[in-house]
Design a protein around this nucleic acid. Structure first.
Length: 423
RNA sequence: GGAGAGGUGGGUGAGUGGCUGAAACCAACAGUUUGCUAAACUGUCGUACGGGAAACUGUACCGGGGGUUCGAAUCCCCCCCUCUCCGCCA
């Protein structure tokens, strides 16, 4: 949610930057400003009324104490009129505030100045290409064939137990999952992140705080009887740790890492996108989250990007990094880098991580602030990134490491796996 | 799930209708004293939205929502949460 004050001060700039996200904000922004004027007026009128009635109430109290019941009763009649009036203003204020909020939450975050314009993924800018490891020739089976060849992932049984998109990992396949999770967590801790284990279900307030609600309602699994959402990413519970809080400057940056299962309905996906491990309803991910001082957030974003790139290098995977264009960057993000690994079996890039700076967009909803040295309170910046999401990493690993003797495990994972080969 | 007790500022906790945005203590911050540390002392010490150049000032908020009243942290109703006991259970 953008800050109203900022919208007010830089109206023209806000509208023109929203255009880069292909969002026509002219109408909604002017509605917001108009509603906010009404809100202020109404608030002022109500406050004045309250002030009057407060001082009358005080007088009445004094009169009673002095035994001047008659005078007190006369004053009471005056307050009756104030009461109906203030009730009127109060109702109006509530409805205006709600209307204002409804509009405000529909405005996306402003894109960073460096973001390339563009409509689709085609327009994303490749900022780094490390493709030396891409095999130029040879037969490479897609991971779903390898999964059944070595009996490490059983899609059919997962489907029977639950439904499609819920694979069953077996034997060395399961062990590989656990190895990757531990590897990612250990790396993050070495980089200064504190591990947390968050709840896998969140309430509506948390889902709202990170921006899943109201717009991505249909993408989350929902347990209606308890009004809880299954998390689509650990970002939601982890960022919400700091909802409604005021941190001290010296507590920044907050660096958290969490492993969690993630649940996504992925309604409307089909075809080659959902084949094998490409897109699942349940998957594992290690997520890094940072809360920073506004002046440091872009430096932090670069650090996080470099951190994730480092993981991919250690895993010996060819990858590239994209800076998302205006049309592809998410509703809540100001700047996002996507990391894609090369799928040797499918001959295409697979997104395995997304690192974003949300600036104050989430903080504003979350009421996540920090107090500076002068005691002033400001919104903090939030950032997060996958580090990393497992399924596509597993897909790419299996495919690129296939040999006649079996699947070779990258060096860094061997201590975690306890084996060097899947065969 | 059943019975009971509670939810007050960063923490402990006072406050059962007006002078309470809230005592006291602790923590925190700034300073004084002091070889250093500690101790002691002095001061500051909630958030949001308005008004004001500022000093300051108006309103709201004592788990959330509604009600009674001229006036609610305090009384009433609903919901949520925590604790204790019982039941169930990894």
């Amino acid at each position: 949610m953008l800050q109203l004050q900022m919208i007010r001060e830089k109206t023209a700039e806000v509208i023109s930057r929203l255009r880069i996200k292909n969002f026509d904000g002219e109408r909604i922004i002017s509605d917001i400003l108009r509603l906010d004027d009404i809100r202020k007026e109404t608030q002022k009128a109500l406050d004045d009324l309250q002030a009057q009635s407060n001082s009358l109430a005080k007088e009445i109290g004094i009169l009673y104490k002095q035994g001047k019941t008659l005078e007190a009763n006369t004053l009471k009649e005056t307050t009756a009129g104030l009461k109906t009036k203030s009730k009127e203003y109060d109702e109006k204020l509530e409805s205006v505030k709600k209307e204002l909020e409804d509009l405000l939450v529909r405005v996306p975050n402003l894109p960073h100045h460096s973001i390339p314009p563009g409509k689709t993924a085609e327009d994303n800018e490749i900022v780094l290409l490390e493709d030396a490891l891409i095999p130029l020739s040879g037969e490479y089976l897609p991971h779903w064939d390898l999964a059944s060849k070595y009996d490490i992932i059983d899609f059919a049984t997962g489907t029977r137990i639950t439904g499609s998109g819920f694979p069953l990992y077996k034997g060395k396949g399961a062990r590989l999952q656990r190895a990757l999770i531990n590897f990612f967590l250990d790396e993050a801790m070495a980089a200064g992140y504190m591990e947390v284990q968050p709840p896998y279900m969140v309430n509506a307030a948390s889902a709202f705080g990170t921006g899943q609600l109201p717009d991505k309602d249909g993408q989350m699994y929902y347990a209606a009887i308890d009004e809880l959402y299954l998390i689509p990413t650990a970002e939601v519970p982890v960022t919400n740790i700091y909802r409604d809080s005021i941190l001290k400057t010296r507590e920044l940056p907050v660096k958290n890492v969490a492993y969690s299962a993630c649940f996504r309905r992925e309604a409307g996906s089909y075809g080659k996108d959902v084949r094998g491990l490409n897109r699942l309803h349940q998957f594992d991910k290690v997520e890094i989250v940072q809360i920073t001082h506004p002046e440091k957030s872009y430096q932090t974003l670069e650090e996080m990007r470099e951190y994730v790139a480092g993981l991919l290098r250690k895993l010996e995977l060819p990858f590239r990094i994209l800076k998302l264009c205006g049309g592809d960057v998410s509703f809540t993000s100001a700047l996002t880098y996507d990391m894609e690994v090369w799928s040797a079996g499918q001959k295409r890039w697979l997104e395995v991580s997304s690192v974003s700076n949300f600036e104050a967009f989430q903080s504003n909803r979350l009421k996540l602030r920090y107090k500076d040295e002068a005691g002033k309170i400001h919104l903090a910046h939030t950032l997060n990134g996958s580090a990393l999401a497992l399924p596509r990493i597993v897909a790419a690993l299996l495919e690129i490491n296939q040999t006649a003797e079996g699947i070779r495990i990258p060096e860094v994972l061997r201590p975690y796996c306890g084996f060097a080969m899947i065969n």
